[in-house]
């Protein structure tokens, strides 16, 4: 099954190697990995997606926690969560084909972010299947796609959720206050796809 882990790690040299090395050792391929700054100073947040057996989730999470630089790990395989991916796609265009791409971009609710006489760049955010859909349609015309750059999945649990680890670190309470209390766990609003 597909596992998704969200982890807070210390923002230091070599930390990503430690995380990646753990998966290498378990002979698990990382499908996607996104890392960036988090709301907490000195901590990066990463979303890691990998394919492994259902029972492997516990051990991976426990092993990630054993890394000294890993502060928190959330296994959100079954939790309600919002997952998004960003893609930049550069396509070759002629003055004749340009308007056709514009239509496609409109339908997929993507954006044109760069335009030259020979190419244009599409920015698209969405779930994986939506991005795959656009790429598939663009591929109908052979040789049109010049480059694809995908961010990998970013995931966040729905509703108000602060792990016990982060809550123990204190900063969770600030987040709670700014979100207007802890009552938002119930009645998850449906996100707009």
């Amino acid at each position: 099954m597909l596992h998704t882990f969200v982890a807070y790690v210390e923002d230091l040299p070599g930390v990503l190697t430690r995380v990646a090395s753990l998966f290498r050792r378990l002979n698990i391929n990382i499908n996607s990995l996104t890392v960036g700054r988090s709301e907490r100073p000195g901590l990066s947040r990463l979303t890691l997606v990998c394919e492994a057996s259902a029972e492997a989730g516990h051990r991976i999470q426990a092993s990630l926690f054993k890394l000294e630089n890993v502060v928190d790990v959330d296994d959100i395989a079954h939790a309600p969560a919002v997952t998004r991916e960003l893609a930049l796609i550069k396509v070759a265009v002629t003055p004749q084909s340009r308007s056709q791409i514009f239509d496609l971009v409109e339908v997929f609710r993507a954006r044109i972010v760069d335009l030259t006489s020979e190419s244009l760049m599409i920015e698209m955010t969405g779930v994986e299947s939506k991005i795959e859909g656009l790429i598939e349609v663009l591929r109908e015309d052979e040789g049109r796609i010049l480059e694809i750059c995908r961010s990998g999945k970013m995931t966040m649990r729905r509703g108000h959720h602060v792990s016990s680890v982060l809550r123990a670190m204190g900063a969770g309470e600030e987040a709670e206050a700014s979100n207007g209390g802890a009552a938002r766990e119930e009645g998850l609003p449906s996100t707009i796809e």
Partner: peptide
């Protein structure tokens, strides 16, 4: 003491 040993 090591949770990664449980059910390994």
């Amino acid at each position: 003491i090591d949770p990664s040993e449980i059910n390994k």
